[in-house]
Structure formats: C-alpha cells, structure tokens
C-alpha cells in the first residue's frame, strides 16, 4: 500500500463512490435496475477482495474496473437477448426520463455495439488512454485505436442525429 495512505473501509468506499459506480453501471447497462444490481455486485466483490486494493488513492479506478468486469461477465451469460432489447430499452427509458439530454446521450451510447460501448466508456468515464484500454482488455493497440476511433465518431454522429430530431420547432 502507498505510504501514508490508510486502507479505506468498505463503508467509506460505498459512501464516497457509490453514485459514481452507479452512473458508470447505468452507462454500461442502459437500465436503472441493472445498474443498481451491478453497483451492489461491485461493492460485494470489493468487500470480499478489499485487501487487493493496493493503492487507496486509486480506489475509484479499482471499483470501476470491477464494475466493468462484472458487466462483461453478466453479458456473456445473457448474450442472446441483447441486440433485440437495446433499442426498445433505450427509447422507453428516454420517454420516462427526467433529463432529456442525459437520456439522448444514453440512447446514443446504447446504440453502439457492446465492445465499442465499453471502449468509449473506458475513454470518457474512466479517462483511460488507448494504451491503458488495450492493456485492460487484452487487445492489440492497433485494434483499439481503429475501433475506438470509429466508435467515437459513431457516437458523435448518433448524438447529432438525435439532437436534430428533438430540436424545438
């Protein structure tokens, strides 16, 4: 552990990072219910493995990595129903939404294929560089560069299209 920094308790981690983890889980899953499950799962895994948190300063990054891995693990199990549900879920949540801008963004994120979505969120939410993303996902750097670049462009294009569609008349 880094000198001078104390190992946080699980309660402290929950208090400081629960909302951030939830937002990440929501961006990944596109569903409030799944996001809460994923958040609880994250802290459960964190509590079981808290001794693996080597540097408390990086607690948030550690928790987000747990969230991402838990999400990918769950998706592998439930892969079949994924593609069909995405469009419907995103649109429904937008209709029920309190924050229109936020939900348009979420629809755009959900429109990306899962692999691109994860990369885009690692870039924007976890502030990772393409190298770190390649290392974390175990994918060649060149592959990450081309896919992430395309994913970012696709996200902007989708956002622009959605914003045009909801622009006030």
């Amino acid at each position: 552990m880094e000198e001078g920094s104390r190992q946080p308790t699980i309660e402290e981690l929950v208090t400081q990072h629960a909302q951030t983890v939830f937002r990440y889980a929501y961006r990944l899953s596109g569903s409030m219910v799944d996001a809460e499950d994923l958040t609880q799962e994250t802290f459960l895994l964190a509590a079981k493995n808290i001794d693996q948190l080597e540097n408390p300063i990086r607690a948030q990054g550690w928790l987000l990595a747990i969230t991402r891995n838990a999400f990918l693990r769950q998706r592998r199990v439930h892969q079949v129903a994924l593609v069909e549900d995405i469009e419907t879920t995103a649109v429904e949540s937008a209709v029920e939404s309190d924050g229109a801008d936020e939900e348009l963004l979420q629809i755009a994120i959900q429109s990306l294929p899962e692999e691109q979505r994860v990369m885009v969120l690692m870039f924007y939410y976890e502030d990772m560089s393409y190298k770190e993303i390649a290392e974390q996902l175990g994918i060649p750097i060149g592959t990450v560069m081309s896919r992430l670049s395309r994913a970012k462009a696709a996200l902007r294009k989708k956002l622009d299209a959605l914003n045009r569609n909801v622009a006030p008349v």
Partner: peptide
Amino acid sequence: IGNRVKSGRHIPGLEAR
C-alpha cells in the same frame, strides 16, 4: 461528451441499500 457521460441523476438511498 466526457462531462455529460460522467454526470447523471443522484440516486437517493443508494448507499444505505
């Protein structure tokens, strides 16, 4: 986009649950 991705609604009672 980065700012918007990171922002979002606050979930009341999440920590307690």
